[in-house]
Simulated assay, not measured.
Amino acid sequence: MNRLKKSLRIGLLAGFVLALALLLGTCVPVNRAFRPAPAGIPVFVVSNGFHTDIVLPLREPRTGTDWLTWLENPAWARQFSAYQYVAMGWGNAGFYMASYGGHLPGAGTVLRALVPGPTLMHIDFYPAAPRPGPRAVALRVSEAQYRQLLNYVQASFERDSTGRLMPIPQAGYTPEDFFLQAKGKYHAFRTCNDWTNQGLKQAGIRAAWKAPLAGSVIYQVRKGGE
């Protein structure tokens, strides 16, 4: 019994230390010296309160980027030719699929997401730039920072043995969004928001040291845009 109590105390202490580390990670910025580039490339970070996406220009002439070409889907190229931006997000496959129809995933889905599991990339086409607000932050980044962010996002997509992207049969939540197979495993220490945060960090954009929650990402990136 004493051994059980000791194990329980150790477990509670470990949980407290982990929660404290995550909280402090939100408050500790990296790339503190980041400043928006006045004539830079527009980038947005958006949140629905739980999940964050990186929003990029659909076409970016300075870097020669055209997502409609890169995504290798003629139907999308026709449907979204007049659109201006595309949102990119990474997350747990089961959680994404359980969210169809606006449903909140059940407890079982949430618990399974705590252990390593398969992931998807979620893309959402925007006809115009997101409007900055409490859940959307606008930035201007240098060409070099944009290229680093671009490389990070593109490297997150999985490809088949022939080198092609792997869209899944199900459509997205609306006629404007879709899912593709992604690289990496989702778990409690590698969340959708951590994916966004890591991309910002690697690109030299202000971010949190650790960002398990959407608010963690938005807080630091907003400070960087001020």
Rank of each mutant, 00 (worst) to 15 (best):
G49Y: 07
N92F: 00
L58M: 08
N48V: 07
L104D: 11
P57A: 05
I54L: 12
G106L: 02
Q84L: 09
G117N: 13
D66E: 15
I41F: 02
V110Y: 00
L104V: 07
T52L: 10
G108F: 01
Y83N: 14
P118E: 02
N92S: 01
V86T: 07
E72S: 15
L120K: 03
L104G: 07
G108V: 01
V43K: 06
I54C: 05
F50L: 12
L58K: 12
F44Y: 10
E60Y: 03
G94Y: 00
A93R: 15
H122D: 08
I123G: 04
M97I: 03
G89H: 01
G108I: 00
G64W: 03
T69F: 13
L114G: 10
W76F: 12
L120E: 02
Y85N: 11
G94S: 05
A87Q: 10
S99R: 03
P105L: 00
A37C: 10
V43D: 03
V55W: 03
A98K: 01
D53R: 06
W76K: 15
A75P: 15
P105Q: 04
H51R: 07
P61E: 12
H122K: 14
G64H: 08
G91S: 03
W76S: 10
H122C: 09
H103N: 07
A93S: 14
V46M: 06
P38T: 00
P61N: 11
P61I: 03
G102E: 11
R35Q: 12
V43Y: 02
T63V: 13
R62Q: 11
A75M: 14
P105I: 00
P36W: 01
S47C: 13
A87V: 05
L68R: 15
I123W: 06
S81A: 13
P118L: 01
G101P: 06
Q84I: 10
G106C: 05
I41H: 01
W70K: 15
R78Y: 12
L71Y: 07
A87Y: 05
T63L: 13
P57G: 04
A77L: 07
Q84H: 09
M88N: 11
P42G: 01
R35Y: 08
R59A: 08
